[in-house]
Each structure stands twice: as C-alpha cells, then as structure tokens.
Write a protein that binds this DNA or RNA. Structure first.
Lengths: 194, 194, 194, 194
DNA sequence: AATGAATGAGACTTCATTCAT
DNA sequence: TATGAATGAAGTCTCATTCAT
C-alpha cells in the first residue's frame, strides 16, 4: 500500500500471482517465485513468514481494487441499471480473457485451507454479491427488470452464470469470451426481463 | 486384506477419489491414499506406476458410467425434450450436492498437466455437449424451444450455467442446490423459451 | 546341468546373464529378468531364493565350460607351448569381442560382496592361473621361453595383460581386439623370449 | 557444522569418493554419504541436484590434478624418457595400492550412463594417452626405444598393461603392486626395447 | 533489508521378496 | 512347478523454512 516500502515485496507479490496462476499453488514453489522476483529466499521469508502469507498478500492487494470497481458500478446503477450491468459484464469478459486471472482463480480451489484466505475470498464474494444486488435492485425500481424474485436471488443467479463463464474460460480454450458477449447479454436479458 | 484379485485396485481408486476431492491432488499423498485404502505402498505402485496414473484410473472408471447416463438421456429426449432436460438438471443438482464430486472437479484444475487426463476430460466435456445438443435439438423440433440460435450454441450456454452451479456448490457452502431447483429451472426455461 | 530340469531355470540364467552384462547387477532388476525370461516373479524365486543366487547360478553354469577349456589347453601345451598360448590368446580376443562377456565381467566388480561369488571368482582365477602356468612351464621345458622367472610369475603377468585387454575392450569402444591380435602376440613374445 | 562456504560441498565430495569406492555407486546411498560428510540431505541436494551430479563433481575435482601430473611428466620426458616412464610407473603403482582409487575406478564401470561422466572419463583417458605418447615419442627420438611401431601404438599397449595392473589390484588382494615394481619395469623394458 | 547455505520432514517411487492359489 | 498380487524397507529427491552474516 505504501509505495516505498519494499520494492522486493511488490516483486514477490507480482511473481507469486503469475506463477500461481500458471502452475497452481503447489507448483509455484517459493524457489521459483524468488527466482522470478529476482530475490533471495531470505527476502521472501522476510516479507512473508509462510508461503500462504503470500497468498493472503496477493488477495489483499486485489481487494482494494475490487472495492473501487464496486463503488463505480453502484454509481453507474443510479443512472441506468442496464448500463451498469453491461459494464459489469464487460469487466467479467475482460477478466475471463486474462489468462492469469482465470488461472489464479482456478488455483485457489486447490490451495490449502486457511482462515484468512477464506475470509478474503468470502469478502470478495460478498462484495460482488452486494454490487450485483444493488444494480439489480436499481433496475427493478426503474422498472427495467422483473420483480417476482428479490434482487438478492436474481443477483445470486447472475453470479452463478458469471462463475460458469469464468470456469469455462479456464477449462475450454476454444471458448472465446469476447465473441460470446452478445449471447451472454441475451441470456441475462431474458433472465431479468419482467 | 484384499480377498480377491482387483479388490486392492478398486479400494485404491475409491480412496484416491475421496482424498483428492477432500485435499486436492497435491494434498492427497500416496501414503494417505494407501492408508485409507488399507493397502501398502507397494500395492499402490503395483497397479498405478505413477500417482497420475491413479487419476487416469479414476477418470476412466467414471467414463463408462457417464456414457450410459448420456445414452439414457438421449432416449428420454426422443419422447419429450423438456422431461429429458429436467432429468439432466436433476442429475446435475444431485452431483453438485455430493461433496466429493464437486471437490474432485475443483481439484482437477490443479492437477499436473497430463495428456491422458486432458484427453479424458475433453472426452467427458464433448460427451456432455453432445448429449445436451441432442436434447435441445429434439426440443426445437418438437417446437418447445427457440430456434433463433443453433442447438449447439444453446447447449454451450446451458453447460456454462451448469459449470456455474457446480463451482458455486464448491465455493459457497450456503448455496443449497436442491432448494434452488425451481429457480434454476426457471432460468433455463426463460433462456430456451421460443 | 540336467537338461530336463527347468526350462524356466535356464531361461532365467540366460536372461540374467544378458541383462547383468547390459545394465550391471543393480540395473538388472528381478522384474526385468523375469520379463526377458518370459517367467513370473514367483518362478524366479522358486529357483533362486535370492537375487544373488542367480549370480551364483550364472557363474556355476560357466565354470564347467571353463574347466573343459583349461583341460584342452593343457593337452595342447604338451605338444607345443607356443601353439597353446596362441590358442589361449585367440580365446581371450574372442571373449573380449563379445559384448556380453566383457560387460558381465565389468558388472561383477560392482556386485555385492558374497562368499560364494567370491569363491567362484577365485576358482576361475586360479583355474586360469594354473592353465597359464602349465602352458608356460611346458614352454620353458621345451626351451622356447625364458627361465629367469618362475612359470608362476610369468603366468601372473600374462594374466595381468589379459585383464588389461578385457577392461580396455569394455571402456574403449574404439579398441579393436581382433585387429590387435598381432601386436598383442608381439608383446607376449617379447615378454617370454629367453 | 560447516564453518565456511563450500566446506559442506568439499565434505560431500570427499565422502562420496570414499563410499563409492568402498560400496560401489549403487551401494553408496545419498543417506550414507550425507552421514559420513556430516551434512543433511538438504545440503547434499543443494550442491548436487542429482546423485550423478556428485559423480561428475568428483571426477571434475580430480581432473585438474591429473592435468598437472601430466604436465610434470611431459617436462621430465624432455630430459630423460626412461626416467619419466619410471615416474609414471611409480605413480601407477602408488595409485593401485590406494584402495580407494582402485575401488573407485572399478565402481565407475557400474555407474549409470551419463554424458558428462563419459565425457570426463574420455578426457582422462585421452590425457593419459597423450602423456604416454609424449614420453614414448621422446624415448624414441633419444634412441632409447624401438621405432618399428608408432609411439601411439606403443602407448596404447603400455596403457593396456596399466589397466591390467589396476584391475588385478582390485580383484586379487594377494597381488602386491609395490613388490611387483621391478617385474613390471622388466615387462615394459622388454616391450619397448629396440 | 538482504543474502543464501543449511536443514529435515516427507513426497514419490523402486525393488527384492513372500505367499495363497 | 508356476503364478502374480501384495508387501514394506529403503532410495532419491523436493521444498518450505531457519539463521548466521
């Protein structure tokens, strides 16, 4: 967070993110991460007492970013819910096209159980859920979308579809998320239509 | 301990499936698998020259089953596509309620790259895709469902939703797949409606 | 020795001899030997309670042969010692050209210490020594060769040269034993000349 | 335990050399080598990624030494070839009396095939061959030795005899190399006499 | 802050050997 | 005689982690 503190630390976080996404948590050994970060093993354990602390660090580095994006979406939803949903959807497709992000998400599934990691993951999920709920709720009030289900339930299913898009991107190389934008928009439009 | 030929092998496959789903591929050590299977390390490597060969074995053991289920669905689709889709959906929800299956699928993402594993996974995916395509195609001919998109594209998006349900089940313990059956049915009905 | 007893046994001895010479004692695993002999591991240990018993068996199978050859040389020496020495030398060159024999001899150096193996090896060495001594002694009496050293000492050094030829053949693939016959004959002739 | 950088490495090389010569390559397990070197298994693999890398290290450590000795012999040969040959012969007998060197050479025959090992062995052989050729060539020019064969061929046979002495020393404990010095000198003198 | 040699638990795997059939 | 599934000790090697400098 502080810019000056640890040029080394940032390099380790970056290298860790890349390698975990490329090789999985187990495959990203501390030695490999040190090598890519250009840092000695001593430096690694100076900043991260344990390998899993690095994972925590990576997740924390991302969470500030995510909060900002969620706020921006909430603002946009006040004007026009459909536009905000489209922005959110574009962000999703962009993410799923980034090989690192998709790989990282897949790797998380295999990381050892750790309370802080689970907490951060839960926070991220709840942030996403609240953002989606806010958008959909706005759309319901604006009369754009169906109201027979609560915004919460609708948001849950939209999130389920997003999860599906992300995991497809990881597992099926022939799945072109960008080309799929309009079909995905159609799916959600039908689902949310009054 | 194993009374009859092949009993040892089956015990190893079963224990491996459970432990991989519980602890991930890396966490499911051969020693732990042997212990749970009630078998010595020698027996393990008698049947599976390499740890990844066990993964191949597990996948192969499942693929026969999967082919049978796909055939049954195809038969059902000839009578009534909506019924077949509902059967498929029930099977999906049952699967996602099984903590082992969902964990196993998640673990696959972190398993080391292996040609045979990837082949079997691709086979399973293509089997699922063909089955869904057949059901949807039948539904289109029976006039139940929309025809502005090909059965193939529709099947792809139905599969994406299925992926999402599965990964939700793994990551979000509060997600109750069974309770969600009607909402999921509604989602798909809206998506496939003419 | 008995022709009928154990077709399996003979196959194991043959396969063991080949594989030990190709891969060394440690590299020639019982599993590989069984595979090449077309026999199960149970059969292997039926005939040879221990892997080293196979080595003993191989050595024993050869020793009868060696004794016959030594007798033949002794007979030849009675007529003409130089002729007998030449026969012995031809046999040496032939042996060193056989990739299996040379490899087997090299492998013996790395086999685990075992009383019976050492005994058989010592027997073979002493058989060779007696045969050479007999030849050289005859040559001395016939006035062909020097007598300033005992036949025993001369035989020792001739054997040393033979050891050198054998180990060269193993280690230096460019060493052509057959082409070297006349140079080797010259070396020994000079050494034994009165 | 190791006080200064590289002390650990040197201890491993020393222990490896001893144990390989005593027990052969397969018998010298990494655990035993670590124990004798007073070092943990982690340290072993810190310096030598693979067991065979230790063999390479041992061979490399020796090759500098060998080059120096070869140079010294070449200098001596300029003054008097017979003296240089005698020096070389003394060195050979000393080596063959060292139980470690002889055992190590024997063990090399059973070590797994490795390109670097074979390269270093070939280098050592060619160094020896060049040194012997230089000595003999000088002796030919000084009129001490026969010239009907090239220095190269004569050097080859002298090397064969040396191989024989070494392998005798390993296999025959009653062979006393030191006591044999004069007889060996006689053998070579006769072989090289004009 | 940074280094990198050293550690040792534990992973996967090999292999000679046993034994019920 | 013959089989081959089962065994478990032991081997090589990996890796997160420590600590003196």
């Amino acid at each position: 967070m502080a810019a000056r503190t640890g040029e080394g630390r940032a390099a380790i976080v970056g290298a860790g993110y890349q390698l975990i996404s490329e090789l999985g948590y187990a495959g990203a050994t501390t030695a490999r991460i040190c090598a890519r970060a250009g840092v000695s093993s001593g430096t690694f354990f100076h900043y991260f007492p344990t390998k899993i602390d690095l994972l925590v660090g990576i997740l924390q580095a991302d969470s500030a970013d995510a909060a900002l994006r969620a706020d921006a979406l909430a603002d946009a939803a006040a004007d026009s819910a459909p536009t905000a949903l489209r922005d959110w959807l574009d962000a999703l497709l962009e993410e799923s096209a980034d090989p690192h992000l998709a790989g990282f998400v897949a790797a998380l599934g295999a990381a050892p159980t750790d309370a802080r990691v689970e907490g951060l993951l839960a926070d991220a999920a709840s942030l996403q859920h609240r953002a989606l709920t806010a958008i959909i709720s706005a759309g319901q009030e604006q009369g754009d979308w169906r109201s027979d289900l609560t915004a919460e339930r609708l948001a849950l299913w939209v999130a389920v579809v997003a999860d599906g898009v992300l995991s497809r991107s990881v597992e099926d190389p022939s799945f072109d998320a960008a080309a799929a934008a309009s079909e995905l928009g159609d799916l959600l439009a039908r689902y949310l239509a009054p």
